[in-house]
């Protein structure tokens, strides 16, 4: 059985280590926060906060306290606030250990496309280009194939790039792959998924 959204998030949480400062993207990456357990992880929200807490209880929402997805959130005892230039200074400066984000396409050389589909509604890249260029490690969490059943792990991206050669590890519903010299390397497969099935679902070169 391929992993579901929560299992993918739980697998991504295994990538995190005590003491890390981490930025989580929107979608499945947001769920990773539910699986960090006892690990000492500080979440960054690029609109200007370290130490992001859970959603507020009803009636305790604060218009001045939101995450990068514009959702109301809460602070923790470790929380600090800062302006956007400082926030991206720590991102660009390599102080954030890892970013976990979603993607439309990843290429075998680590190219990432996740911000724009030409001809469709263009919303903007937000902080994605800065994050992938600056953080220590970029971990992509996404479905292995698109809704037409086509591989999202490609020889080359077809969509406009968010970053060139930036992805380190890919966690999909079928397994975990690393970007290495010459292509992608299978790290593990989801329970009940064979290596042959994963290879069949992948366009990118597997080494």
């Amino acid at each position: 059985m391929p992993w579901d959204r929560n299992q993918m998030a739980a697998r991504a949480a295994e990538e995190l280590e005590d003491g890390m400062y981490v930025n989580l993207g929107i979608g499945i990456p947001t769920l990773v926060a539910n699986y960090v357990g006892d690990k000492d992880i500080t979440l960054q929200s690029e609109n200007g906060m370290l130490g992001m807490g859970p959603f507020p209880l009803e009636g305790e929402e604060d218009a001045d306290l939101i995450n990068a997805g514009k959702q109301t959130i809460t602070e923790l005892r470790r929380t600090s606030y800062f302006d956007s230039a400082t926030s991206f200074g720590m991102i660009r400066g390599g102080k954030i250990a890892a970013a976990i984000l979603g993607a439309m396409e990843v290429a075998e050389n680590g190219d990432l496309a996740n911000w724009m589909i030409p001809g469709k509604l263009v919303k903007g890249m937000g902080g994605a280009m800065d994050l992938v260029a600056g953080v220590g490690r970029v971990i992509v969490v996404m479905d292995h194939t698109n809704k037409h059943g086509e591989s999202k792990l490609l020889k080359e991206c077809t969509l406009p790039l968010t970053g060139q050669g930036v992805v380190d590890r890919i966690i999909t519903n079928l397994g975990v792959l690393d970007v290495v010299e010459g292509g992608l390397k299978i790290v593990e497969t989801a329970e009940g998924v064979t290596e042959a099935e994963l290879r069949d679902a992948t366009e990118a070169t597997i080494v």
Binding site: L57, E61, I73
Partner: peptide
């Protein structure tokens, strides 16, 4: 007014 764009809450 300080309008909230995405009001998200958790259950007690």
């Amino acid at each position: 007014e300080k309008r909230i764009e995405q009001r998200t809450v958790r259950q007690k």
